[in-house]
Design a protein around this nucleic acid. Sequence first.
DNA 1: TTCCCACCTGGAGCACACTCCAGGTCAACC
DNA 2: GGTTGACCTGGAGTGTGCTCCAGGTGGGAA
Lengths: 119, 119
Amino acid sequence: MTVYTPAEAVEETGFSLDTLRYYEKIGLLERVTRNASGQRRFTQDDIGWLGMLRCLRDTGMPIATMLRFAELVRAGDHTIPDRIKLLEEHDRQVQAQIANLAERQRYIHNKISYYRSVM
Amino acid sequence: MTVYTPAEAVEETGFSLDTLRYYEKIGLLERVTRNASGQRRFTQDDIGWLGMLRCLRDTGMPIATMLRFAELVRAGDHTIPDRIKLLEEHDRQVQAQIANLAERQRYIHNKISYYRSVM
DNA sequence: TTCCCACCTGGAGCACACTCCAGGTCAACC
DNA sequence: GGTTGACCTGGAGTGTGCTCCAGGTGGGAA
């Protein structure tokens, strides 16, 4: 069973150590096990869960919503339908973000073309 | 020449009145003309510029960068090449955002499929 | 004339998501 | 034995981008 030191978890997840501690403190991450001298040892599962969090965070999910998702996960398999609902709702928001960005991008392209035309 | 009251500018731009005042205060918006009793009267140009700001803001440009762009615009036509550079750089970032969102979205889709498969 | 309402200003306060700090522990290397 | 470096904790501080507030003005409806 592989474990990760804090430095390795930072490397692996791209989160800063402070962020990892913060996520644990607010309950986004279940209490990470400690070794004999009190230092964190992250499991493969922790790293996997952090990958999920990174995905949700980077698609703009607020921490409060990630917390709700974390609670569903902790509550057990009977919450899978709720998790699906939550992710589907989030997926729609991601879709909307993409569409919105693409539309704004057209505006930017037009502006650039306009500037080119008046140079 | 059409002018807009504060309420109309809010309606037109989607920014709150506080945000419009804030943008003026920090120099994102040049000082808006006032009527005899000191109230703002937005011109068509103000509204158009605010449309540009909305586009930049909604595509994630930080205020500091919008300020640089605003200064270029104020400095006159000889800054058009610089404006193009700035917008092109921003365009690349928007492109990267879209690509990133699309990739994360695939992860979310996979997760949803996984959840569906274990229900 | 009295009320309300939209608006004004300067400045304080807030939500979010971290990020930093002080003071301490422990293991390992010199 | 001493020093270094990674890590610990609780709690304070920070940056961004607004948002709210107190106290005041001016114009129009009742």
